[in-house]
Computed example of a mutant assay.
Amino acid sequence: MSTTAVAAVEDEDETHRVRRRRRLSPGRRLPAARLAGPALVIALWAVASAAGQLDPGAIPAPWTVLRTAGRLWTDGTLPGDVLTSLERATYGFLIGLTAGVALALASGLSRVGEALIDGTVQLNRAIPPLGLIPLFILWLGIGETFKITIIAIVVYIPIYLNTHAALSGIDSRYVELAEVQGLSRFRFIRQIVIPGALPGFFVGLRLGVTGSWLGLIVLEQINATSGLGYMMFQAQNYGQTDVILVGLLIYGVFGLVSDSVVRLVERRVLSWRRTLSS
């Protein structure tokens, strides 16, 4: 077989492998494809409601929930509650993000830092953050401060754990290469530490952004006067299942959108990685 024929066969094999990787890769799918599952659930919900298979008092039909959402939005109740919930989640998330990254870097880049920080964070991890609510109410009162603090704790723990694990998992050969090349501390962090920690950081970021909404839905039902959780708590007292579902659906949309944004940023920042999802 001639050299040209061999090269043609190799090119054809390589093209076949690339196409196969693209078919297998979930990262190539359109972001809108993630809506297929929720859309299917809503469709089944609508069909079951139309067929009379669901008790309207327990699970109202989707169109009933939409009408309720429109009414709450029109009378000004829903916009204020949504804005309040977004502010609480944002402040808590930013504080938790900053604390998680700072502690992970201090612990991952220093043996002294790891001795002082890691054990404390692991102890904090073993205590359910929502179990700290009574203590934080005594310390900080029942205002916004304790709610934001609990959300920050819920957020910082997964960010710290995953970022610290990524830092600890950096190949020692890269560290030895940096020493041989005589890289400064700053260049070592910029060229070795940050790229090596980013994959773990984004895993923790996705867990943290989801955790902020999970914590919020509980905290807003404790001594609150506004927010989606407060709206749902009031609806529970009056047996308004449709209002409760409006709040749950909005929480779900916030969680899906925030997770999708993090995944989009991750895909762009880590475009140099060649993985199944890249």
Rank of each mutant, 00 (worst) to 15 (best):
A166N: 09
S25F: 03
A5M: 15
V265P: 00
V9T: 14
D118S: 14
G239P: 10
V265Q: 02
R190L: 02
L54D: 04
L78N: 00
G80W: 01
T98K: 02
F136W: 00
D118C: 05
Q53L: 15
E266G: 01
G108N: 08
L228I: 15
A197C: 10
G96D: 03
I142L: 06
T98W: 13
G57N: 09
V257M: 01
P31C: 08
L135W: 03
P26C: 11
G211N: 10
V9A: 12
L276Q: 15
S226Y: 12
P31G: 11
L207W: 05
G143N: 09
V243C: 09
W139I: 01
L140Y: 11
L219Y: 10
L245A: 02
G131V: 00
A32Q: 14
V154L: 09
I59G: 05
G76L: 08
T149D: 10
D13F: 12
G200Y: 07
R268S: 10
I153C: 08
R67Q: 15
L72N: 02
L105E: 04
I150G: 00
I244Y: 08
L116E: 02
G96C: 07
M232C: 09
R34A: 15
N237P: 00
T64Y: 07
I127C: 02
T90W: 11
Q122H: 13
R125E: 02
P38H: 13
G113V: 10
Q221T: 14
I42N: 02
S2V: 11
F186R: 10
L130G: 02
P134R: 01
A99W: 12
L228Y: 14
I148K: 05
Q53Y: 07
E266P: 00
G239C: 04
G92Q: 05
Q236L: 14
G119F: 09
D55W: 03
L83D: 00
A33F: 11
L135V: 13
L214N: 14
K147F: 04
Y230R: 14
F186Q: 10
I142T: 15
T241Y: 00
V47G: 06
I217V: 15
Y91C: 13
V82K: 04
L78H: 02
L123K: 00
G57R: 09
L214K: 12
I250P: 06
A104E: 05
G239V: 00
P60Y: 03
A165T: 15
V101A: 08
F188Y: 15
